[in-house]
Design a protein around this nucleic acid. Structure first.
Lengths: 328, 328
DNA sequence: AAATCAAATGTAATCGTTTACATTCTCACA
DNA sequence: TGTGAGAATGTAAACGATTACATTTGATTT
């Protein structure tokens, strides 16, 4: 008899008990005599029986699987979050279906539909945009949003305190002597990009930093955008000597520009979000705002687990504090 | 009636046909009258019926899910591979369970056991070490190995042509005037690390490059190792002016050393594996050996799909060519 | 109009578990 | 030794789909 045909039924036959008993020892049900349990376990080991989780799920309506949807995978920021999520969930017996939305709303929708059909117990979503009406097709499957908020759908959410992080960075820059601070922003469609801008703007107002429209530039969170905007800023007339960059990939692009230009930028100070590999060695870097990425993931997973277990607390948005790394 | 209670049975009732007919429509079975199919589809749309894939899987013994096991997620190299895999599989209706093995053989084993119980249709593994006896617990579930080979288990595999990539790089270095080339190697337990060393060593022999034991150092593929070995090499007496670095993370570490040391390294030339973000801007970088990462992922997925569909071709190892990026 | 046959549909078993409910043990106690 | 109660076990019906096989329908032929 091939190993693959060994089901509870077969184990029951070999152990001379009923399938119910097998199931009971499998699930640690107390009401089975120790000797019986021992014999069953013996048989199970002996014939290499392994539970079929698909069948179990069908019956119990629980898959111990959660979906994660992220705009892309080649992104240390997202993957740090995923690392935190996976680690936490694994410790509770869950596994993770990973889906890329390719930053497309339509794709995001398709993946969610699939996750629903696969009966995931919950989902963690890093939204690709600020629109989230389609998330409601998860119906009563718990959802936790991460890193970005969304309109048209309310749920638990976990993200960095972007406003405060930006604000503090600007204050620190002022302490270091900044008089004017340029700004390279992400796509304003994303909450995090907006919040980072707001923190920056508010700090400028509060601290009397000149706010020059010409040196506040918006693009998106990608490398090319950082390159382009940094170039634009540095080649303009009134180039500031402090520049705030809104995320790591823009920072990479900006750094690439600085390096490629071959020019020297004496006195230039860069402030940037995200403490990712080598950011601390990019040209002119003065200050890094570090997000607690894995912690965000762990927190999101914790929240999700609570919801899955039926928590009915009010939905909440958690903003975890960033930290500052001052380089010179 | 809540949306969640809508099963084929309910749809059948509403459409006035049997569940068999619903199933046939769902699966595009030809032998159902167009009018009937239309009516059924109508009802399905109307009541928002969605198939329960868990139930379907139980019956069909096909989950349309494959497992991916990787040593870690915060790794652009691995995640590029995963990107290629996910994209290809998605196009064929499969989704992906992502597991981290944390470079632990025990953990790798646990994850595989879980994947087996979850009835994945196949698995793609980036092994954490060169031992793979435990992979056999996938029994007749198809497995494709990626990036690293393994002893004690044979299967399809896809990886870069590490030997050739190294060999070519050394030849290019020689063309550029190298007389002696230091080597920073990864953990020799990994096939890729060994192969890269072999390519380097063979090229040195073939091309008459001095092979100095003192400047051939081994560590592991991580950043700290790159830092430590580069420091060791640069602070030694006979520091070579060409250095071959075996992967991206070691390169990051080495670059960190060069930057942190504050010293100048006139005439130093770095050759390194992996064309990852900003590698081309690391100090002294002269040549990058780029691996076709997403392509590796796509190829692995293609192979897996063929096996899942029952291909019985001889198991094969594919070594995809690397490419060279010459920087100065 | 009866016979034939293919096409369309239905019936019911099945996939491998879990679990409500029914039954049978076991043993303390009268 | 019979009784009763609780513990241990068994029986059989789900879970929601698919599908082999049986049946019905309806067109075509004679």
């Amino acid at each position: 008899m091939s190993k693959k045909d060994i089901t509870v039924k077969e184990v029951a036959r070999r152990a001379g008990v009923s399938t119910a008993t097998i199931s009971r020892v499998l699930n640690g049900d107390s009401k089975v005599r120790p000797e019986t349990a021992a014999r069953v376990k013996e048989v199970i080991k002996e014939c290499g029986y392994r539970v079929n989780r698909t069948a179990r799920s069908l019956k119990t309506r629980k898959t111990y699987t959660v979906g994660i949807v992220a705009p892309e995978f080649k992104n240390d920021f997202f993957m740090s979050i995923v690392t935190g999520v996976e680690e936490t969930l694994k410790n509770h017996g869950y596994s993770v279906i990973l889906c890329s939305s390719h930053e497309s709303r339509e794709e995001e929708k398709n993946r969610l539909r699939l996750l629903k059909e696969k009966n995931v117990d919950g989902a963690i979503i890093i939204p690709g945009s600020s629109r989230g009406e389609h998330f409601s097709l998860m119906e009563d499957t718990p959802v936790v949003l991460v890193d970005r908020l969304v309109e048209g759908f309310t749920s638990d959410a976990v993200l960095s305190d972007n406003f405060q992080g930006s604000y503090d960075a600007v204050r620190q820059a002022v302490d270091m002597g900044a008089r004017a601070i340029g700004f390279l922003g992400g796509d304003k469609d994303l909450t995090s990009a907006r919040e980072r801008f707001e923190g920056y703007a508010q700090a400028c107002r509060d601290l009397g930093v000149a706010f020059n429209e010409e040196t506040v530039l918006f693009g998106d969170y990608h490398e090319d955008s950082g390159y382009r905007l940094m170039k634009q800023l540095m080649e303009s007339d009134g180039a500031p000597d402090y520049v705030f960059i809104s995320n790591y990939f823009m920072h990479v692009g900006a750094a690439r520009y600085l390096l490629e230009s071959g020019r020297d930028f004496p006195g230039l100070h860069v402030l940037s979000f995200d403490d990712l590999p080598l950011a601390a060695f990019f040209p002119c870097i003065s200050l890094i705002i570090a997000q607690p990425m894995e912690e965000i993931g762990r927190k999101a997973a914790d929240l999700l687990l609570k919801r899955i277990d039926g928590s009915t607390e009010k939905r909440q948005t958690f903003r975890l504090p960033t930290s500052m790394r001052i380089l010179n």
